[in-house]
Design a binder for these strands. Structure first.
Lengths: 384, 384
DNA sequence: CCCGCTTGCACAATCGTTTGTGCTCTGTGC
DNA sequence: GCACAGAGCACAAACGATTGTGCAAGCGGG
């Protein structure tokens, strides 16, 4: 890269100096070591024994390589090996800590195997998501982890069928055809809903995320379960909103407040929506939890310090990320549990961490990680 | 990639079917169109005019390519062109929204030019940062945006000297040798400090980030400026902490509380530290702002809803990210301001956004973006 | 002394692009 | 009728790695 303004170190004048000039190729190493390119390659790749390179030669080559700061071009290697060492990660919004954490776990988990993460941010738009997929496909990623915007999974399924392994996280789909990992949203939703119901709430407004997404459907299901168990029925008119955003939560809250003044509690399907709801309530001069109780999903460092700490169901995001990573790695046929001192990563540095203690049980294609309930002060007995 | 279990479409039997088999090469397209590989390449790359490919041929090739779903292998192209189309982004913690936002802006800003972002998370450790740099170098990234852990910039400087453009953001260094972009921390710090001083605070504890980092030094400088202007002197013993983390803020607060019971205000150099401080104060049973005033940096959606919304100086993070991206692109000799309908990105999709309205003024290598002050309720007149 | 086996390495093909150069036509002007 | 220009395309050499195969020594046994 950047051909101009470097001296290429073909036959450097002062033997032994060899300050790093950027593109040091295998040929440079070979020449300097007085061997052929193939020998140099084998010496560096631990193939010495197999191809009977003498220990002396191997050592010499290694030394020259080190002196020259040789780094094998992954591009060339990729071409020859038909393996890019790249994994694409596409999320709706990387500045959302939830997705950032997932990206982080993937990045941390795969680098031990010499993979790097190509990041894509779809900005919650399906069209951009598709463009990103194409772009990453052209970059020859070996697998894709997608947290989809939430609609139209078809292009992902097609992609997977065409031979590019795709794993879906969080925003999984119904009638699933792709390996997916998500939280146990139904149980989680039921748990938070029951906090409300125990206190006597029956008129519960729901701030929904993308309606077609499985998380939204499943959380609604959990709420319905709880209602049913308590012997009442949830009117669909108490449902509003159609996105996992603050704006959606704000708008939906106002809508519900107008539509159902008798409402005593809010069930927010995500943190941004809860924030939006709190803004809306503040504008209407309503206090939490005295005028309105509220429950939500996911926690945050700030949460504890809030005026009214939210009662939430918290997902184990890192675990979700690690599970997704494990599934990804499994589909790539690299063994997450193998001791990583093997030559799998060749010249790349030794593993930074043991990738995942996750057991991929069974052959299901939908994995769920458990959640925990955090009861805090945002729920009270309904006023009247 | 993934050679097995696809039919290669060399000469597909049913003409016209051509469902996507994964590796469709240029040769396949050429064969099917009845031309040579070189002609196919030129037809697809808009070189038709220059190399006198007949419009008919060009059209035919394009059609075949479309039918086959041809995507040029970026790996092969990279090898030939000596351009990977990859940009490395290394941050200390991608799950921190601050860095996530920066990564996001870079990703958004460069994709219009056909670049993709390779993400690295250094986990606030210099050693890992260095490993990531090596890994990304091997992947042939064309440039690197680093938010360093904060110490030992030497390897970055060396890298840049060796021909790989490096841009530093946020955690810039003193005696700078690399293009850097950061906020105007001195002014920002002075502004928040003055909020404290105006109310009469003089015994101000400082929760510092990494001492050697320029942000920490500069923010301290801003505080010192304000103190000096108000005619008093800040005792170094009021300084504690040495990291941009919650833990550091917590520990430092306890330390200062013990060391200086007369302290009436806290100047936290980052949000995590402020959170740590609030935890510590809560444990000691101290209320904000009645028992202790506090100011900090950076805002957050949650901030408004906190028990005591913090008075903070907020950085324009997206702008910072965009500026960094612009500097990056400039160093890569792609023109951020050019209308992007040029053939710069070839077969890659049309630009998703106008990359940056940023004016890169002058040839300075340190750029600063302005900040704004948010006065909220975390500051009061000192008790006694 | 010669044959054959082992050792240690070099040759060359290959991955899928891009691009400089050269070949073959067709048509035109004289 | 012929040379020549230019249009339209094919050939082949890179890019930097990996890897199957072939070739030359060295050695021992007969």
């Amino acid at each position: 890269m950047k051909p101009p303004n470097h001296r290429t170190p073909d036959t450097p004048p002062g033997f032994g100096s060899a300050t790093l000039a950027y593109p040091v190729t295998l040929k440079n190493v070979a020449d300097r070591a007085g061997v052929s390119v193939s020998t140099a390659s084998r010496a560096l790749n631990g193939q010495a024994r197999k191809y009977r390179i003498s220990p002396a030669t191997e050592k010499a080559v290694r030394k020259v390589a080190a002196d020259l700061g040789f780094q094998a071009s992954q591009v060339a290697r990729s071409l020859r090996l038909k393996r890019s060492g790249l994994i694409g990660v596409i999320v709706p919004d990387i500045s959302n800590p939830f997705f950032a954490s997932i990206a982080r776990e993937v990045s941390l988990g795969v680098e031990a195997f010499g993979f790097s993460v190509l990041l894509g941010d779809s900005r919650e738009e399906t069209e951009i998501e598709q463009r990103l997929v194409e772009q990453l496909r052209a970059k020859q990623v070996e697998a894709l982890l997608v947290c989809p915007v939430g609609v139209d999974p078809d292009h992902l399924v097609k992609l997977d069928r065409s031979g590019l392994p795709v794993v879906v996280a969080d925003r999984v789909f119904d009638g699933i055809e792709l390996p997916s990992v998500t939280s146990d949203n139904r149980t989680a939703a039921r748990a938070v809903a029951e906090v409300l119901i125990e206190q006597g709430h029956r008129k519960i407004g729901v701030l929904s995320g993308v309606r077609d997404s499985l998380p939204a459907k499943t959380r609604l299901q959990g709420l319905t379960d709880a209602a049913q168990h308590a012997g009442f029925h949830l009117d669909p008119s108490y449902l509003a909103g159609n996105a996992f955003t603050e704006q959606s939560g704000y708008d939906a809250t106002l809508t519900l407040l107008d539509r159902h003044p008798e409402m005593t509690a809010i069930f927010a399907m995500c943190t941004p929506a809860a924030i939006g709801a709190m803004r809306a309530l503040a504008e209407r001069g309503m206090a939490i939890p005295s005028d309105m109780s509220i429950v939500a999903f996911d926690d945050h460092p700030f949460a504890e310090l809030m005026k009214t700490p939210l009662t939430v169901s918290v997902q184990d995001i890192p675990r979700l990320g690690r599970l997704a990573t494990a599934v990804l790695l499994k589909r790539l046929n690299v063994n997450p549990s193998t001791d990583s001192s093997t030559e799998s990563s060749r010249q790349t540095l030794p593993p930074l961490s043991t990738p995942a203690e996750i057991e991929i049980q069974s052959s299901t294609s939908l994995w769920k990680v458990p959640t925990t309930l955090l009861r805090r002060s945002s729920v009270a007995v309904p006023r009247q």
